[in-house]
Measured scan of single mutants.
Amino acid sequence: QEEEKEIKRLAKKFNASEEEARRAWKKAGGDPETAEKILKKKG
């Protein structure tokens, strides 16, 4: 599933848990760029 792959990639890229990545993904409405910004800010 595309979403799961994206979440795993985000978690790995930002050294975050999949739970954090999933939360960022949901907050971003499934937009990878926005999710990255959220995780970057958090990191």
Rank of each mutant, 00 (worst) to 15 (best):
Q1I: 13
A35T: 05
R23D: 15
A16H: 04
A28Q: 00
E2D: 14
D31Y: 03
K12I: 10
P32E: 05
K5A: 13
L10C: 01
K40R: 14
E6Y: 10
E18G: 03
K5E: 14
A24Y: 02
T34Y: 11
K13N: 05
R23L: 14
K12V: 10
K13C: 08
T34W: 12
R23P: 02
D31V: 08
F14R: 01
E6G: 05
K5F: 13
E2G: 10
E3T: 10
E36A: 11
K41M: 15
P32V: 15
A11F: 01
E3N: 09
K26N: 13
G29W: 05
T34D: 06
K37P: 01
D31M: 03
S17N: 05
A11Q: 09
G29I: 04
K41I: 12
E18L: 15
F14W: 10
K42C: 14
E19T: 06
K27G: 07
E20C: 12
K27V: 10
Q1G: 13
R9T: 05
E20T: 06
K26Q: 15
I7W: 05
G30W: 02
E3R: 07
I7M: 05
G29E: 10
G29K: 10
E2W: 15
S17Q: 03
A28D: 00
T34P: 01
E20A: 09
W25M: 14
K41H: 14
A21Q: 00
L10G: 00
Q1R: 11
K26H: 14
K40L: 12
A16R: 08
K8P: 02
L10Q: 01
P32Y: 12
K40W: 09
R23W: 14
F14I: 02
K13R: 08
K37V: 07
E4N: 08
R22G: 03
K8G: 06
K42Q: 13
A11I: 09
L10Y: 01
K5W: 12
K26G: 09
P32G: 05
L10T: 01
G43I: 15
E6F: 11
E3W: 09
Q1T: 12
A24T: 02
K5G: 08
K42T: 13
K41D: 14
E3M: 11
R9L: 07
K40C: 09
L10M: 04
A28M: 00
K26E: 15
F14L: 06
N15W: 06
D31F: 04
K13T: 05
E36Y: 03
L10K: 00
E3G: 09
R9I: 06
L39Q: 00
K37Y: 07
A24V: 05
E6L: 12
G43F: 15
K8I: 10
A28E: 00
R22P: 00
G43W: 14
K37W: 07
Q1N: 13
G30Y: 04
T34L: 15
A21E: 00
E2N: 11
R22Q: 05
P32S: 11
P32I: 15
A28R: 00
A28F: 01
G43Y: 15
E33H: 09
I38Y: 09
K26A: 13
E2A: 11
F14T: 04
K8M: 11
L39E: 01
E36D: 04
G43D: 11
S17F: 03
G30N: 04
E20W: 04
E36N: 03
F14K: 01
R22D: 04
T34S: 08
K27F: 08
A16W: 04
K13Y: 06
R22N: 04
K37S: 10
E6K: 05
E6S: 08
I38S: 02
G29Y: 08
K40Y: 10
I7A: 02
K12Q: 12
E19Y: 06
G29R: 09
K40E: 14
E6T: 08
S17I: 03
P32R: 14
R22I: 05
G30I: 01
G43M: 15
K41N: 14
P32T: 11
E36S: 07
A24D: 01
E18Y: 15
K5Y: 13
E36V: 04
E33A: 13
K40V: 08
A24E: 02
F14P: 00
A28G: 05
E36F: 03
E4G: 06
A35G: 00
G29D: 08
G29P: 02
A21W: 02
I38L: 09
R9F: 04
W25K: 03
G29V: 05
L10D: 00
G29C: 15
E33V: 11
K27R: 07
N15V: 04
A16D: 02
G30M: 04
E4I: 09
L10A: 01
E4A: 09
G30T: 02
K8Y: 05
W25H: 08
K37R: 12
K12S: 09
Q1M: 14
K41E: 15
S17V: 03
K37N: 13
L39F: 03
K37A: 14
G43T: 13
E36C: 06
L10R: 00
S17A: 05
E2H: 10
E33D: 11
E36R: 03
G30L: 02
E6C: 10
E6A: 12
A21K: 00
A21V: 14
L39H: 00
S17P: 07
K37I: 11
R9Q: 06
E33W: 08
A24G: 00
E18I: 15
K42L: 15
E19V: 06
R22E: 09
R23F: 09
A11H: 02
L39N: 00
I38R: 02
S17D: 06
I38M: 06
E18S: 04
K40M: 15
R23S: 09
K42I: 13
E3Q: 09
S17G: 05
T34F: 12
K26L: 14
K8Q: 13
A35M: 05
N15Y: 06
K13I: 08
R9H: 05
E6W: 14
K12E: 12
I7Q: 02
E33P: 07
G29L: 09
E2L: 11
E2Y: 12
Q1F: 14
A35V: 07
E4P: 03
R9G: 04
K5R: 14
A16Q: 07
K12T: 08
E19R: 07
R9K: 09
R23C: 15
K42N: 12
A16N: 03
G43E: 12
N15T: 05
I38P: 00
I38F: 07
E36K: 05
N15K: 09
S17M: 04
E18M: 15
E20R: 04
E19S: 07
I7R: 01
K8S: 08
K12A: 12
E3C: 13
I7S: 01
I7H: 02
A24W: 01
P32W: 14
I38N: 03
K41P: 07
K41G: 13
K26W: 09
N15L: 07
K12M: 10
E33N: 10
K12F: 07
L39M: 10
F14D: 01
G30S: 04
L39A: 01
A35K: 00
E20N: 04
P32Q: 08
A21G: 02
I7P: 01
K8F: 06
P32L: 15
K5H: 12
A16C: 15
L39T: 01
K5M: 15
S17E: 03
D31W: 03
N15R: 08
P32M: 13
R23Y: 11
K13E: 08
D31A: 04
G30V: 01
N15M: 08
E20K: 03
K42H: 12
A35C: 07
G29M: 10
E19L: 06
G30Q: 05
A35E: 00
E18Q: 07
A11G: 03
K37E: 14
L10S: 00
D31T: 03
I38V: 04
I7E: 01
E6V: 09
A16M: 12
W25P: 02
E33R: 10
E2T: 10
K42R: 13
K12L: 12
E18K: 05
E2I: 10
W25F: 12
A16V: 15
E20L: 07
G43L: 15
K13V: 06
E36T: 05
E2F: 13
T34N: 07
A28L: 00
A24L: 02
I38W: 05
R9W: 04
K26R: 13
N15P: 01
K42M: 15
Q1A: 13
I38T: 02
A28C: 04
E20G: 02
K13W: 04
E6P: 02
R22T: 06
G43K: 12
W25D: 03
R23M: 13
K41T: 14
K27N: 10
I7G: 00
K5V: 12
G30A: 06
A28T: 02
D31R: 05
R22M: 08
K27E: 15
I7L: 04
K27T: 12
W25Y: 14
K13D: 06
K26Y: 11
E19Q: 09
K26M: 14
K5T: 11
L39W: 01
F14Y: 14
S17T: 13
I7V: 07
K40H: 12
K41Y: 11
S17W: 02
K8N: 07
R23K: 12
I38E: 05
I38G: 02
T34Q: 14
